[in-house]
């Protein structure tokens, strides 16, 4: 499988990263090299192997108990709104400010 610069651009749009033309060329090459290396992995026979979806020790812990970790749902305030807003790049009246999203 090989990707072309157009598909790389599509991936970059999904990842919300604007790329320069040089970056498109470099990352296309780099990802193609990565895909080529992955050919080795594709040759591994995995028929009937279950995919591992969590860190294995966690799965083992859950298997001994219930399948879900549950806790009481109660309200607590760990951070004040002021603490949370302190790192906001732009804010207004206690809200995060973003460019206009609705057309006139």
């Amino acid at each position: 499988m090989e990707i072309r610069p157009e598909s790389l651009l599509h991936i970059a749009r999904l990842a919300k990263i604007r790329l320069t033309e040089d970056e498109v060329v470099a990352f296309t090459d780099n990802l193609n090299a990565a895909l080529q290396a992955l050919d080795t992995l594709l040759q591994l026979p995995t028929e009937s192997v279950t995919p591992c979806t969590h860190a294995p020790p966690l799965l083992a812990e859950l298997a001994n108990d219930t399948q879900n970790l549950l806790r009481e749902d109660h309200v607590e305030q760990r951070l004040s709104p002021e603490d949370i807003m302190r790192n906001a790049p732009e804010q207004q009246d206690g809200h995060f400010r973003v460019p206009k999203v609705v057309e006139d």
């Binding site: 499988m1 990707i3 991936i11 999904l14 990842a15 990802l31 895909l35 992955l38 992995l41 594709l42 591994l44 995995t46 192997v49 279950t50 995919p51 591992c52 979806t53 294995p56």
Partner: peptide, 21 residues
Amino acid sequence: TLMLSTGYYDRYFRKAQQARN
């Protein structure tokens, strides 16, 4: 992002999850 996109997920990401097991 590529690994999780349509077509690549089944081919590569799922394979990696199996290899992890």
